[in-house]
Design a protein around this nucleic acid. Structure first.
Lengths: 332, 332
DNA sequence: TTGAAAGCGCTACCAT
DNA sequence: ATGGTAGCGCTTTCAA
């Protein structure tokens, strides 16, 4: 059997309610007593009984997170960051890898206080959930039944293009997925075109490549096609971390130098970008900030349910590393 | 407030202890009463209070799983399958993405009944855990402090090579990671060489390529190098699902046909292999069987702690799809 | 076959 | 500043 507060009380020679207070750092206990009790508790290897705490406090202090179905490094990095962030709070996080409805079911049984979700277009599936739900994804509509954390993709592309333009690039290509299925990808694509327009840069059709996927080899294939033509861009915007990885490799295989011959800027902003064969200059909401905001929001929502479901757009950050440089005059 | 058994008791006109029994399908309750109570419970949307159940029953009925740090499709497929398998039992599963010690800490707080782990060489880290632990990984030693589920890599390679030999292949290449760090990979590599030996096939040094990684592009790069030489193998064994994906693409890019010009067999056995551009013939423990065994074992261990920690080697299965064929006489 | 009641370990309130 | 105690929702004796 495990140590309980009653055991501690017996040893400490106090009542067990005092022990409870001491362990919860209540100001109602004399510091000396408190200290003594805490020491005894530690010595005895006391671990509070979660179930008992919950039973009485009604709150589970658990946040559920549904593991995104799409496998991407950026997403799993985000999940890891969220986990780290939550562990700094009094809350714990549990994950489910099941499909959304099954996950919600599990979470209901666990009586979690709130749920974090990554999918979009989940309206239908969510009908009767009364658990506070926080979604990370695209905010299509003005209104929503649950709070949404989104990234300002338009601004991100604007900053990326602006940066490249300032470096003197006029011939910029975008390699990303714009298959119309994934609205987040579409936002990036549209954002790019809009930004090019804003900075008075013409964008050639051949410089707009639909990778039809977000994986490493999608970027690799796309850049291979791009570089095997006569006219090359002086800079490339990669639509995602993985795509950009493929882009870099493709470029290197053609013995082109980054950034001397060609500059590359990538969407997404995760620390891994600094550790690539060429550290990638990138644009996007830093994953740790994103995680912080997601955790802050869900907890705020949980503790304050009447809060109006809000939509929050996170601002991107340009992280300058080594993959972008001034345009090479030779190639102009 | 949620519905409790007392509420149900009031409506049903019985005592709440009867409700408890009825809901737990106790034989002590008259079937008619039981049926009525269950109906009322459903109608009222009753959900048992997890915390209360735990508090009294001492068992949490929760299995914790520590998300593997290495990102691989096969592993996440396995996790998904384990989750599915556990949901068929009275147990639930929670995941943690934190490093092992932090995860174990969380699990201890949650008072989970058992933990599933994927890493190897964890001896040191586990010192003082008294939670039943089940490891999926390589069983280096005869003895271990915890049960291990392993795959019979030697037999797998034997079957793969045997199959290819029967199809008439003599020139077989192995593309996998054998960087000595990952003992599971080493087992595959050694298994391949041993099997080649057993079937009296010579293996050329150039046909043994260390991909130094398990990703798609590792396979792609390796096969590109392999195929750009004069002498080609008639068959390739790919060391993992991802590697083999890259291999296939590399082959196709060179306008070679699978399996007419070259046969490919992949390690690992997950359903996704049937859906590739060329459905992959593969060897490995089917992921669903693996999941079943893992779940069966951990539960057995949990419910039967005095059980001697065992090492179980799972048998591989050869799944014949479309990527292997008889050797093409022209290339012999 | 059903009901009463103890008690799981804890928090929070009221009393001292 | 400390102690006493009700009660969270449930399972599980024991009694009827």
């Amino acid at each position: 059997m495990n140590v309980t507060i009653k055991d501690i009380a017996k040893i400490a020679g106090v009542s067990y309610s005092t022990v409870s207070k001491a362990l919860n750092n209540s100001p109602l206990v004399k510091p000396a007593t408190k200290k003594r009790i805490i020491e005894i508790a530690e010595e005895m290897g006391y671990e509070p009984n979660f179930a008992a705490q919950r039973l009485v406090s009604k709150q589970t202090q658990i946040i559920g997170l549904i593991w995104p179905t799409i496998e991407r490094v950026v997403l799993s990095t985000l999940v890891t960051n969220i986990s780290k962030e939550i562990s700094k709070t009094p809350y714990s996080m549990i994950l489910s890898v099941d499909p959304i409805p099954a996950s919600l079911d599990t979470f209901r049984r666990f009586q979690v206080d709130g749920v974090i979700l990554f999918e979009e277009n989940i309206e239908k599936k969510m009908e009767q959930t009364n658990i506070p739900l926080l979604v990370y994804g695209v905010s299509n509509k003005e209104q929503s039944n649950y709070p949404i954390i989104d990234a300002n993709h338009g601004q991100a592309m604007d900053e990326a293009v602006c940066y490249l333009a300032e470096l003197g690039h006029h011939h910029i290509a975008y390699l990303g997925d714009f298959s119309e299925i994934d609205s987040m990808q579409m936002q990036k694509y549209k954002g790019f075109k809009k930004a090019m327009d804003k900075y008075n840069l013409k964008v050639k059709d051949e410089f707009l490549i639909n990778t039809k996927g977000l994986d490493w080899y999608d970027g690799y294939t796309a850049v291979s096609n791009l570089l095997d033509t006569d006219e090359r861009p002086t800079a490339i915007v990669g639509g995602s971390y993985d795509i950009s990885g493929g882009i870099i490799r493709g470029i290197k295989e053609r013995k082109l130098r980054i950034p001397d011959d060609i500059s590359v800027i990538s969407y997404d902003n995760i620390p891994q970008m600094a550790n690539m064969e060429t550290p990638l200059t990138s644009i996007g909401v830093p994953v740790d900030e994103l995680a912080k905001e997601i955790v802050r929001s869900i907890i705020e929502y949980v503790e304050n349910k009447e809060l109006y479901p809000s939509v929050k757009k996170m601002n991107p950050v340009l992280s300058i590393r080594k993959s972008c440089g001034p345009v090479n005059e030779l190639f102009k």
